[in-house]
Design a protein around this nucleic acid. Structure first.
Lengths: 233, 233
DNA sequence: CGAGCCCTTGATGCATTTCAACGAATGTGG
DNA sequence: CCACATTCGTTGAAATGCATCAAGGGCTCG
């Protein structure tokens, strides 16, 4: 039930949420201590929901390993994917009392589950940590603004190029070869296009020599500069 | 240079940023006092920029009257409009050191300009106010997520319907007749479509009997339920 | 009255969706 | 181990939504 905050994986995840020199913050140690007492480390299986839209939002989650997808369904059939989350992201920022989207695991993995009241009480006692948290929220906000910009201004294939560059940064940490943890349908629902258009996008970028596709999920960016130019037009 | 925090217009603007019972918060009075000493009330003219993309983000702005548009330009010609802001909104939340978009006045108006360091120091002394501020950020985040959803999932005319319902709430405060302060081009750039498509959208909604158009900027929603149904599909 | 601006409308072409068929990979049971 | 079903991705063809190009209408202001 409780977690081991001395684990490297957990420490690095927390550090990438709360910033590089997290350990030096006032209250960081008390925070870790309280986490080790009250937070839970839970394992999640592929395709299981961590929470669903309209569930009461009582917890905040920090992915330690595995990939998480945030989604919302429309009245009739279709689905929107808001984000893909990896280690170092954070989940459940909302201060509403209900989640406004669902969170589903794309792969088996581990997440740390923290009661919101615990977080709230930490924030009240250690403003430095609260500040970091809110800086994180701000980064999310800016990230979503960029996404909004891309959705409003770019063509389908350009959006796909942006997506691949983003994934290269976040999954491959800058390396050009990486494994996509999501299906074509997931990508399409994230970028607001049909599955077929997403697939054609992959083919088109491949034909242009910007990427190569080892198999459906394993991608290499061959010409990053050209991909950037194409994406930004 | 300084502002008069006893002015009703300023009080109501602050209240709608920081929440209903703002005055009862711990530190609210000190906050107001510091504002009256150090914040500035400035008048802005139609079409003037309050700040531009890449300007150092040293201030936070609270619109008292008038309408503000947030925009960003692409490398070549086109433009994205992120938001339209009214009284009770807040501008410059970013904790980056530079703005990532420009802010332009759509009409003559008044805004309160607050140094970020002042805000920061208030937050450090009065966590209750900081908390309110961050709740506000959270509302913005949720608002943008909804916008992202709409941009990704809805057709051009549906997006326009959403837009009109949103404006009805925010400008007309729920009344069905209101004055649009922005041009068709602004709307198009906000909703990610061409000026012509936006215009056709207006015509189409009018032909369907959902809205009526007194003149270019004065709109009446005739059948709100139908408009909702159409928007949400 | 005429100029200029913004909005509307029509015609055409392109981007994207939809429908449909096929191919590749994976797993299952005989 | 192979036939078969299933799932997921690709590709083609037709239909549709939207952008673009182009012309005209209405309003405001000099």
């Amino acid at each position: 039930m409780t977690i081991d905050t001395s684990k490297v994986s957990i420490k690095t995840s927390l550090a990438s949420c709360f910033g590089r020199n997290f350990q030096e913050l006032e209250g960081a140690n008390s925070f870790l201590e309280e986490l080790s007492k009250h937070a839970q480390e839970i394992h999640i299986n592929e395709n299981c929901y961590i929470f669903k839209e309209k569930d009461p939002s009582d917890y905040i989650y920090i992915p330690i390993s595995g990939v998480i997808m945030l989604e919302r369904s429309t009245s009739k059939g279709s689905r929107h994917v808001f984000a893909f989350l990896f280690t170092g992201n954070l989940l459940g920022l909302s201060e509403f009392s209900f989640y406004t989207f669902s969170a589903r695991a794309l792969s088996n993995g581990t997440i740390v589950k923290i009661n919101k009241q615990l977080i709230q009480s930490i924030f009240e006692r250690y403003p430095a940590i609260a500040k970091r948290f809110h800086e994180f929220t701000n980064h999310v906000l800016n990230y979503i603004l960029d996404q909004l910009f891309i959705m409003g201004q770019k063509s389908a294939h350009q959006r796909l190029a942006h997506f691949l560059l983003d994934m290269s940064n976040r999954i491959g940490h800058g390396t050009n070869k990486f494994y996509l943890p999501m299906s074509r349908q997931d990508i399409a629902d994230y970028l607001g296009m049909s599955l077929e258009t997403a697939s054609r996008g992959f083919s088109s970028l491949k034909k242009k020599g910007m990427i190569s596709i080892q198999n459906n999920y394993r991608i290499t960016i061959l010409d990053e500069a050209a991909l950037h130019r194409f994406a930004d037009d």
